[in-house]
């Protein structure tokens, strides 16, 4: 099952690269390899790999009574969404995306503190503990990175707007 997915991804990757290379020359001047020469090599290897994987796993499925197997797998895939570990992971992805999205608007330090706090609470740390930990973490990051190491962190757009 995994192999057939990888095979399909591999095939579509190959096609995708060819589409990307449309406007770029393969050869330049007297026949020097151009900017799409190597990408097209990658694309053809990707297509070959994809074909091999798909054909191989199709044969394998046929031998082990394929269709029932396939239906079972789809059912498994459906169950996966209800699976708690998977939902935990998805929740984290969303939280992290919102975090990065907010950084330029309310500044690195504040957003980071919020992020630390919310993630901890969302995954079962008690509120007071989470608050202390996120505050301590941000304070030490501030001292270490910004004061000592002089790492530049994103400034809030809001802040610079008000400044002007």
């Amino acid at each position: 099952m995994k192999d057939i997915i990888v095979g399909i991804i591999s095939l579509s990757l190959g096609v995708f690269i060819i589409m990307l290379c449309r406007d770029l020359p393969i050869f330049i001047a007297k026949g020097y390899p151009g900017p799409s020469f190597f990408p097209l090599i990658l694309s053809s290897i990707s297509l070959i790999c994809g074909l091999v994987l798909v054909v191989r796993s199709y044969r394998g499925m046929k031998m082990s009574g394929g269709n029932a197997n396939l239906r079972q797998n789809i059912k498994l895939l459906g169950n996966l969404v209800k699976d708690i570990p998977v939902r935990n992971a998805i929740k984290f992805i969303v939280l992290m995306a919102v975090y990065i999205l907010l950084i330029p608007h309310i500044g690195f330090l504040l957003t980071s503190m919020l992020f630390m706090f919310i993630v901890q609470v969302a995954y079962g740390v008690s509120m007071s503990r989470a608050l202390t930990i996120s505050f301590a973490a941000i304070l030490s990051i501030y001292l270490l990175f910004i004061v000592v190491l002089k790492v530049v962190v994103p400034e809030p757009i809001l802040g610079t707007l008000v400044f002007r």
Partner: peptide
């Protein structure tokens, strides 16, 4: 009440920060 209080804390922090920026400007 848990989610409510998260919301309140978030709002508080944003308001305080906003005020600070305004003050400095």
């Amino acid at each position: 009440s848990k989610s409510m209080s998260i919301l309140i804390i978030v709002l508080l922090i944003v308001v305080v920060a906003g005020g600070l920026y305004y003050y400095t400007s």
